[in-house]
Design a protein around this nucleic acid. Sequence first.
RNA 1: GCGCCCGUAGCCCAAUCGGUAGCAGGCAGGUCACUUAAAAUGACUCCAGUGCGGGUUCGAAUCCCGCCGGGCGCACCA
Length: 880
Amino acid sequence: MSESSRYQPQAIERQWQRRWAEQGLHRTPALEEGGDTCMALSMFPYPSGSLHMGHVRNYVITDVIARVERMRGRRVLHPMGWDAFGLPAENAAIERGVDPGAWTDRNIAAMREQLQCLGLSIDWEREITTCHPDYYRWTQWLFLQFLEAGLAYQKDATVNWDPVDQTVLANEQVDGEGRSWRSGAVVEKRQLRQWFLRITAYADQLLDDLGGLSGWPERVRTMQANWIGRSRGAEIHFPVVDAEGKDSGERIAVFTTRPDTLHGVSYVVLAPEHPLVETLTTADQAVAVAAFRDLVSRQSEQERTAEDRPKRGVPIGARVRNPASGELVPVWIADYVLAEYGTGAVMGVPAHDQRDFLFARQYELPVRQVIVPVDSDAHDYEGTAWTGPGVLIHSGRFDGLTSEAAREAIVAVAEQEGWGRGQTTYRLRDWLISRQRYWGCPIPVIHCEDCGVVPVPAEQLPVELPRGVALEGRGGSPLAQLKSWVTVPCPSCGRPARRETDTMDTFICSSWYYLRYSDAHNTSLPFSREAVDGWLPVDQYVGGIEHAILHLLYARFFTKVLRDRGLLGFSEPFSRLLTQGMVQGITYRNPHTGKYIAPGDVADPSDPRDPESGERLDTFYEKMSKSKHNGVDPAVVIDRYGADTARMFILFKAPPEKDLEWDDADVEGQFRFLQRLWRLVDGAAERGLSLAGLAAADGGPDGTAPSCAAPSGADLSAGERELRRAVHTAITAVSEDLQGDFQFNTAVSELMKLSNAMAEHLADVSDAVAVEALRTLLLLLAPFAPHLAEELWGRLGGSGGSVHLQAWPVADPAALVRDTIPLVIQVKGKVRGNLEVPADADRATLEKLAVESDIAAKWLEGRSPSRVIVVPGKLVNLVP
RNA sequence: GCGCCCGUAGCCCAAUCGGUAGCAGGCAGGUCACUUAAAAUGACUCCAGUGCGGGUUCGAAUCCCGCCGGGCGCACCA
């Protein structure tokens, strides 16, 4: 084999990347040209400085989609940017004294370089970087929009404090175990004055619009719905009475989803932190209450909300009157009532709420049944409350109503008599956005002693982040130390005032970046209405499931607010969402020491041993990470096999939404496949085959014309017909795989099938049939292995410029037609044989052929079937 | 506890509507050819009856019920 005919990706990939860039092949077409647009978007990365396999998977998936859509004739926007504010830069500054901006820019340069090695068809002219003033100017501008709309506000609140990162966090950024999403530290509660965005004002829309997101995974929609956590019920006011039983004027508001159980209340419980505890506690209970509150305050969130822990509480001495029945019941505080949810107070209905039931048992409080189950036996209240629906008893004028009817009736009476109303509460809290850190977008407001909070006038934006700030990592807001920056004249009265020194949560920057791509260089607005409405919503968004609630919820919120401000004309930012699975590496761990061993240190993978102790190691796949020594560096893989192999492997190894197990042997296999393609085309070129001259028969990139001057007619040989069928089957299959669900793994396997069929038949078919097959193969390959497809296209004399400028092939239905098909003969549902039958035979013919076949004779032993099921094109089932 | 998803050869994965489980594909293994030999390449080949138990059906990987195993989300949210 001559040197020039070997597949050497290193020799061709760089060169093509350069040529594509020179030709501006991936530049976004102008919106004014009209026609169908498509925005394909990957979640933009944090510029850590090194690309990992998860990034590669993400961007390759989006790239294939962008490339296919271009070939299908759509005008594609496929941009990239950098989520560039954030703590790693600031921490690097603290540890090594480097400038966070310079550090970030260096990382961006390095990662951009690595990304370009992948052959991604990104329009780099629209690159955005959230930490650059030309971007964050508009982040600040948008913040002022929120402020103006009354959707940004400051308040004192109990907030999550991350002791490692020395800043507050939003609720979404703390996981189920009470740990920070970034640092993993258990968060503490602190009482601080902070900035919030009023996301709760959009809770209903955010929840209701999930129903229309049919292009999103069910899983993500459920997660968001759970997070928003809407529950409908009522707020009921219980008047507090004094020792004589007279109304004191105070009232306790409780939230309940079961107003129908109001007559079953045997006590009312406040959260220990509830403000009324101070005023309502009687002298004789003061000591016990103080002790209990102290106990609760020393428990962590986790301890307090742990499963199955006994509920504890103490009475505070006060009593309230049930507004419906007039009955007097005691007031308690208990650890199972949360201050942050609802009104921070509940009515205790032991008979019909399991928590109240357990609490009542513990403290011997009365259990009063007011709901009788209808369709089941009488409830025994041995260990559980009856929480189902039923009919009301012991409920005065509401007796006999069903739970459902009673809910409405009781709320109606409450509203009429002024002691309650229908109410909906949410689990969702307002979004805490201030951060006590330096490397973030400054909040553009000024605090004036006379004028209060004054927004920085739009024409003074951006409020630039001062450079050269000494960062020592002792927490607090670093900007506050910079007196010269902090002190400014009040824009309103001109007297000395102070700048806000907190910066914004970086999730704000990423809540609108996808909009900026539509108009990345606009200097008078974040984006024009025409551009944003022309390109968005994003047709296909691709990213990790870890943002199911965080980024994806925030972005939806921003979109709705900006719509209401008239800045854009749609309600949801992402029409379709693909959540890609993790890339996992083979991981070795010593089960005794718990130490992770690098695969390179394992001598024999079939019998993995600890290189030090010789102990047998556990082997499994886990998400690649430094600490587990199981990462594979994309740069190393690209150096060795080329980007096309890496792309093909990642797409082929698993369906995109599933986790992918990295396997070097499979990478090797993928490389071999590309080598086979190379040899296949090389052989064809030696034979003198050429794609030149086919241009006239091509369709334009409108995707409607046939892919090729189709060799047709009955004069084709059997082999030729078989190859053509394989070619057009591949077109159909790959096209379907790239529609909707994106089955890249099966699409690649279709390419393998086609190449196998070509290897078998190519030598025996006419030039016209061979050329059609070669051309189709390269067109189908182009989105997956863009460099190889381009190189081979060139070698075969492909006309019409780059393979990436060609129209996606269209299958010729005539080529798919078969003369005969194998008909499966079943007897009583069991396959007993095959019959070659004319493909167009009708039901009666099929039945006749089957019944008269030898197979039928053998298995029916002469009897005639009592029933015959015919599935045309597939099978005939004979039931004796 | 509630909800969702998944379970197919040694491994990763396929299999429109229920219709031949793999001439879907790959990896690993085996045999052979080429070679002085090896690598590379090519050809052929081995391997499951779909986690388990029921049900519906002419026919179930696919639909229904109950278990088992794994993953994810929510969880004292009133």
